[in-house]
Amino acid sequence: MLRGFLVLIGFFLAGETARLGLGLPISGGVLGMLGLVTVLVMRGQVSDGLASASKAIISVLVLLIMPGVVGIFFQADAFDGYWLAILSALLIGTVLSVLSTLLLMRWLTGPRKYQETQ
Protein backbone atom coordinates (compact mmCIF):
# COMPACT_ATOMS: atom_id res chain seq x y z
CA MET A 1 0.00 0.00 0.00
CA LEU A 2 2.90 2.38 0.74
CA ARG A 3 4.06 1.79 -2.81
CA GLY A 4 0.59 2.91 -3.91
CA PHE A 5 0.88 6.12 -1.84
CA LEU A 6 4.23 6.80 -3.45
CA VAL A 7 2.62 6.40 -6.90
CA LEU A 8 -0.11 8.93 -5.92
CA ILE A 9 2.45 11.42 -4.59
CA GLY A 10 4.61 10.89 -7.69
CA PHE A 11 1.72 11.68 -10.04
CA PHE A 12 0.73 14.69 -7.91
CA LEU A 13 4.28 16.09 -8.10
CA ALA A 14 4.38 15.41 -11.84
CA GLY A 15 1.08 17.29 -12.15
CA GLU A 16 2.43 20.21 -10.12
CA THR A 17 5.56 20.25 -12.30
CA ALA A 18 3.38 20.42 -15.43
CA ARG A 19 1.20 23.16 -13.88
CA LEU A 20 4.14 25.35 -12.86
CA GLY A 21 6.26 24.56 -15.94
CA LEU A 22 3.50 25.28 -18.45
CA GLY A 23 1.75 27.97 -16.39
CA LEU A 24 -1.58 26.11 -16.57
CA PRO A 25 -4.58 27.30 -14.49
CA ILE A 26 -5.39 23.64 -13.62
CA SER A 27 -4.46 22.13 -10.25
CA GLY A 28 -1.58 19.68 -10.02
CA GLY A 29 -3.97 17.13 -8.51
CA VAL A 30 -6.23 17.14 -11.58
CA LEU A 31 -3.25 17.00 -13.97
CA GLY A 32 -1.75 14.15 -11.93
CA MET A 33 -5.09 12.33 -11.98
CA LEU A 34 -5.29 12.64 -15.79
CA GLY A 35 -1.74 11.27 -16.01
CA LEU A 36 -2.67 8.37 -13.75
CA VAL A 37 -5.83 7.54 -15.74
CA THR A 38 -3.82 7.65 -19.00
CA VAL A 39 -1.25 5.20 -17.62
CA LEU A 40 -3.98 2.92 -16.20
CA VAL A 41 -5.82 2.86 -19.54
CA MET A 42 -2.58 1.98 -21.34
CA ARG A 43 -1.76 -0.79 -18.87
CA GLY A 44 -5.38 -1.97 -18.69
CA GLN A 45 -5.30 -2.71 -14.95
CA VAL A 46 -4.70 -1.28 -11.45
CA SER A 47 -2.16 -2.86 -9.08
CA ASP A 48 -3.51 -4.02 -5.70
CA GLY A 49 -1.22 -1.60 -3.86
CA LEU A 50 -2.46 1.41 -5.82
CA ALA A 51 -6.10 0.30 -5.51
CA SER A 52 -5.86 -0.03 -1.72
CA ALA A 53 -3.91 3.23 -1.30
CA SER A 54 -6.45 5.20 -3.32
CA LYS A 55 -9.35 3.56 -1.49
CA ALA A 56 -7.77 4.49 1.85
CA ILE A 57 -7.16 8.14 0.99
CA ILE A 58 -10.59 8.56 -0.65
CA SER A 59 -12.24 7.15 2.50
CA VAL A 60 -10.77 10.03 4.55
CA LEU A 61 -11.51 12.72 1.95
CA VAL A 62 -14.31 14.15 4.07
CA LEU A 63 -11.83 14.66 6.91
CA LEU A 64 -9.48 16.50 4.55
CA ILE A 65 -12.13 18.98 3.38
CA MET A 66 -13.45 19.79 6.89
CA PRO A 67 -10.98 22.64 7.58
CA GLY A 68 -12.38 24.33 4.46
CA VAL A 69 -16.02 23.65 5.32
CA VAL A 70 -15.75 25.04 8.84
CA GLY A 71 -14.32 28.28 7.43
CA ILE A 72 -17.75 29.40 6.20
CA PHE A 73 -18.90 29.84 9.83
CA PHE A 74 -15.99 32.21 10.50
CA GLN A 75 -16.02 34.12 7.22
CA ALA A 76 -19.75 34.34 6.49
CA ASP A 77 -19.92 38.08 7.34
CA ALA A 78 -17.53 38.79 4.44
CA PHE A 79 -20.49 38.04 2.13
CA ASP A 80 -23.12 40.14 3.92
CA GLY A 81 -25.43 41.78 1.40
CA TYR A 82 -24.85 39.04 -1.17
CA TRP A 83 -26.68 36.12 0.45
CA LEU A 84 -29.81 36.57 -1.71
CA ALA A 85 -27.64 36.26 -4.86
CA ILE A 86 -25.67 33.31 -3.46
CA LEU A 87 -28.66 31.34 -2.18
CA SER A 88 -30.78 32.02 -5.28
CA ALA A 89 -27.93 30.88 -7.53
CA LEU A 90 -27.46 27.69 -5.53
CA LEU A 91 -31.13 26.79 -4.99
CA ILE A 92 -32.69 27.81 -8.31
CA GLY A 93 -29.56 27.05 -10.36
CA THR A 94 -29.27 23.53 -8.97
CA VAL A 95 -32.96 22.68 -9.46
CA LEU A 96 -32.71 23.97 -13.07
CA SER A 97 -29.56 21.98 -13.80
CA VAL A 98 -31.03 18.77 -12.33
CA LEU A 99 -34.14 19.31 -14.46
CA SER A 100 -32.00 19.90 -17.57
CA THR A 101 -29.85 16.78 -17.02
CA LEU A 102 -32.90 14.56 -16.42
CA LEU A 103 -34.74 15.86 -19.51
CA LEU A 104 -31.64 15.59 -21.66
CA MET A 105 -30.83 12.04 -20.52
CA ARG A 106 -34.47 10.98 -20.92
CA TRP A 107 -34.53 12.38 -24.44
CA LEU A 108 -31.13 10.86 -25.38
CA THR A 109 -32.14 7.42 -24.12
CA GLY A 110 -35.70 7.71 -25.52
CA PRO A 111 -37.58 4.46 -26.36
CA ARG A 112 -35.90 3.85 -29.72
CA LYS A 113 -32.40 4.97 -28.83
CA TYR A 114 -32.63 3.15 -25.53
CA GLN A 115 -32.95 -0.23 -27.29
CA GLU A 116 -29.93 0.50 -29.45
CA THR A 117 -27.75 0.91 -26.40
CA GLN A 118 -28.85 -2.39 -24.87
Binding site: L8, G32, M33, V37
Partner: peptide, 12 residues
Protein backbone atom coordinates in the same frame (compact mmCIF):
# COMPACT_ATOMS: atom_id res chain seq x y z
CA UNK B 1 -3.39 16.84 -3.72
CA UNK B 2 -2.62 13.10 -3.69
CA UNK B 3 -6.30 12.43 -2.80
CA UNK B 4 -7.35 14.17 -6.03
CA UNK B 5 -4.93 11.96 -7.96
CA UNK B 6 -6.46 8.93 -6.21
CA UNK B 7 -9.88 9.76 -7.74
CA UNK B 8 -8.38 8.55 -11.04
CA UNK B 9 -8.49 4.93 -9.82
CA UNK B 10 -12.31 4.65 -9.39
CA UNK B 11 -12.70 6.67 -12.60
CA UNK B 12 -10.63 4.07 -14.45
Amino acid sequence: GPATVALGVPLF
